[in-house]
Each structure stands twice: as structure tokens, then as C-alpha cells.
Simulated assay, not measured.
Amino acid sequence: MIRCLSVAVLLSLAPLGVAAQGAEVAFGGMRQDTSAPVEVTADALQVNQSDGTALYTGNVLIAQGQMRLAAPRVLVVYAQQAGRIKRMEATGGVTLVSGSEAAEAQRADYDIEGGKVIMSGNVLLTQGPSALTAERMVVDLKDGTAQMTGRVRTVLQQSPDGTAPQGQP
């Protein structure tokens, strides 16, 4: 989950209402070697040679390095080069986990060549008792950052003595 909230998130919080229009978060655990092999497991597979796609359905789990993506349906689009994946479109309720960080959304589009994951539809990002929600989140896997937009809501839990909970910034 979020190892460190950026100053932009902290400055965007209203004193009592914790809603903001947009926020940028540090996403250190989501750094990813986009050249690492991609492993996909699912209940079923349909391959379409004419348009260069593969549709995985049922308990789909995609692994690349430390990153795991789970969804009921994932469409894999291959690049012109044989054997290279261009992008993946996951739908039906998606969970993205990398190390200790995790996010959920209705949809995730993973541009492997560009190293970006765009999650949309009721995005939820949590770390321990703290949480961020938004309509859309763009994760840059190369530099480990994320941009959240669309009525961002942040809930930061504090310990009784006013310090951040253990493991929080």
C-alpha cells in the first residue's frame, strides 16, 4: 500500500473534510521491471490470431516480477513483434498487488511498453488503517508514482498520541 504520501496529498486535505480533486502519491513498491516475463493463469483462454489478441477468463492471475493482477476477464493485446505483449485490459473487478501495496478498481489497463497502469471505477488504495479513493489512478511503474483524480478522498489514521501509526510516514 502507500509507503509514503507525498506533500501534495497532505497539502490538499481540508481541515475537517478530507476530499480533494486530485492527488499524487508515492508508490515505491509499485516500481516494476516492465521487461520481466509475464505469467498468466486462468480457467479459460480464447486466442484470436487475426487481431493478435488472447482473452483469458475465470480467476485470471497475471504475475510480472513482484506485481500481481487478478480479475475475472483479461484481454491481452500482442505487439507486431511475435511474442511481445503490448497491453492488457482487465475488467470485472481488478486487484493489483505489488509487495506490500495494493489497489482495487472496476477496470485496469496495463500498457507494458509504456510502463503504466490506469485503474478506473471506484479505485481504492489502502495501507493499514489509511485509505485513498478516487475515480481514476494512473500508476507509473518506472518511477513508482501514482496520480489519482476524480473526487479523491483520503482517510489518514493517527495514533492517540498524534504520531503516525507504525509503518506510516
Rank of each mutant, 00 (worst) to 15 (best):
M88W: 01
A42N: 10
M67Q: 04
I2Q: 10
L5K: 11
V74P: 09
I2W: 06
V97Q: 09
A134D: 08
K142M: 07
I2S: 06
N122C: 01
S6A: 11
M1I: 02
Q49E: 14
P37G: 09
M137A: 14
P169F: 09
S35K: 13
Q21A: 15
V60D: 06
S50A: 06
A44W: 02
Q66Y: 06
V76Y: 04
P160V: 05
L124N: 08
E113V: 13
T163M: 12
R153L: 10
I62L: 03
L45Y: 04
G52F: 09
K116Q: 14
D111A: 05
T145A: 07
A103Y: 03
E104F: 14
R136I: 05
L132K: 06
V38A: 05
A8E: 12
D33Y: 01
I118D: 15
V152H: 00
A131H: 11
K142L: 12
E135V: 09
A19E: 15
E104D: 14
G162Y: 13
L132E: 02
D43A: 13
Y56S: 10
Q46C: 05
T154D: 02
Q106H: 14
A108N: 07
Q147D: 07
N48S: 15
V40W: 01
V9R: 03
A36R: 14
K116V: 13
I118Y: 03
